[in-house]
Design a protein around this nucleic acid. Sequence first.
DNA 1: GTAGGGTTAG
Length: 665
Amino acid sequence: MNGIRKKTFQCFSKLNHDVEFKLKIQSLCNFGRLQEAINTLFSKPNSLYPSLYPPILQLCIDLRADKEGRLIHDHLMRNGYLLDLNLNTKFVIFYSKIGDIENAHKVFDEMSEKSVVSWTAMISGFCQNGYLREGLDVFSVMHRSSVKPNQFTYGSVLRACTSLMCFDIGIQVQGTIVKSIFSENLFVQSALVDLHSKCGRMEDARYLFEQMAHRDVVCWNTLIGGYAAQGFADESFVMFCSLLNEGLVPDQFSIGNVLRACSCGRPLFRVNQIHGFVVRLGFESHGVVIGSLIDAYAKCGSVRSARLLYDLMQEKDLISCTTMITGYAREGSGSMDALDIFGELYRLNMGMDAIVLCSMLNICANIASLCLGSQIHALALKSQPEWDVALSNALIDMYAKSGEIGDAHRAFDEMEDKNVVSWTSLITGYAKHGCQEKTIALFEKMEDNGVKPNDVTFLSVLFACSHTGMTDKGREYFGSMINMYNISPRAEHYACMVDLFARAGQLEQASELLSKMNLKPNASLWGAILGASRTYGSLSVAEEAAKHLFDLDPDNSVNYIVMAGIYSEAGLWEEARKIRKAIVHRKMKKEPGCSLLQNNMKRRGTVQRDTRSIPFYSYKEIERATSCFSERHRIGTGAYGTVYAGKLHNDEWVAIKKIRHASRR
DNA sequence: GTAGGGTTAG
């Protein structure tokens, strides 16, 4: 009897001890004291007790504790412990969270038993680590097995389809969801709205949204964002207002999404309105919201407001700096401010990525600063282990606009994956350099390589044709653009064609083309017509073009000056006088142009010139400088104006830039 | 389940 009592007591005592031990570990885990929990666990020889491990492993997952999690896995494997379904699933999640997808897959592959949770862990593991195709493959294996997906499985798979823009697979998944018990699940429905939105099917997205019995702020945000991303700015804004009317409180996502809709050249007062909400909702210190606001102000033309917000930001980061830099790049005249911000970003070690380098190269291209551009190139080589297509494209453009078409071609040749923008950038470079044979040869090579040209490619090719008198070739390409590539010509293409015909003296052809055109002309096209009629056309055509231009672009003094010139040439002095009087009356003035001269253009890399010290020259000084050129080329036109390269008698090259703001009020 | 920055032309 005593023996039994003793044994029972020992049993209880051990049990109590085990419970106490487990509680101690649990408590350490609850307080996030991972290392102490592990030390306690390993201090007992019986620490293979299965229920001790899940809390510690969960903490490793939460803390992304790479070393500790691996140590526990290793400990269990070395002791020959057979992991149960729960623990194995936790290891799949652990390895996925720390980005070791190979080990996650290994654990998953070796599991003798799998549940919906383990399948879902593997699918989302692949998806979260960017292996979207693999995630979908696992889902399809799961689908063939008898395991039924849950709402988390559907969420992951729909997300993968959305990211891959695999609408067909997404629709198949939707088919299985409709038949499942998750068709009314809010998360699943939101993911479906997102899939349809991102794939450009806004009507279907809206239908799904309307069908939902209950809607939370997340699914409203999804639709607001969908409309914004697909360019339906008004619908996005209306949805945002409806969200407010429903009595829901917008969150940071709602604000970010609707700001995106306000930032496509929409009126500034919309951004101001949303700014009001940002203040009222207390998001003034929210980095992402303020970042979106800065971008919206910059894109709506108020770089000054953007800068004020940026300066107030307490924690600036790589993205907010890039937003500001890009805002300045777009504006054109603020490149010195952009350089200051880039300097700050560099000094404060905020990181460096392809996007900011891309924006910087864009600025270098527009100011044709080969010196700065090659420094950014060097920085990109040092900081970017993997080359990004857009970055390479920006590099081609920078070298081409800085007059180094050979280096632009080299950058192009070094690219492994070229896209239509890469080809177009180089084609444009050659076209602007006046190398018509190269332009045409490259365009044909592009077609031979199976790369489909786009509307911009044709603008460059047509530009090259019109500027080199290849009228027939230009007409042929214009035809193939429409018939072979199904690209509808925009007013800019017609402007190119009018220019092409006018330069060749074929006015009837130009007017025939315009009469067949089913498009409302814009300022660019009327400008081409005005230019053409100045050289060859009738006064009535010029007058009509000028009338439209005065209406479309009333502050551009160039159009008034050209029209006054046409009247003068026709001997209509009174009419010419009236136009000139209008220039004075409208307080437009043609400011004297100023140009920029950068020496040592060919000696890049040797002179680290501070771009702020590049001097500005008056026209007279430029004339004096260019008079001694033995060769001169027009090498490009950017947001800043036209860039010329001139060769001095000592064989040194200089770049000359005519700033375009001269014609603006 | 949703949110901020980039490349060609004009």
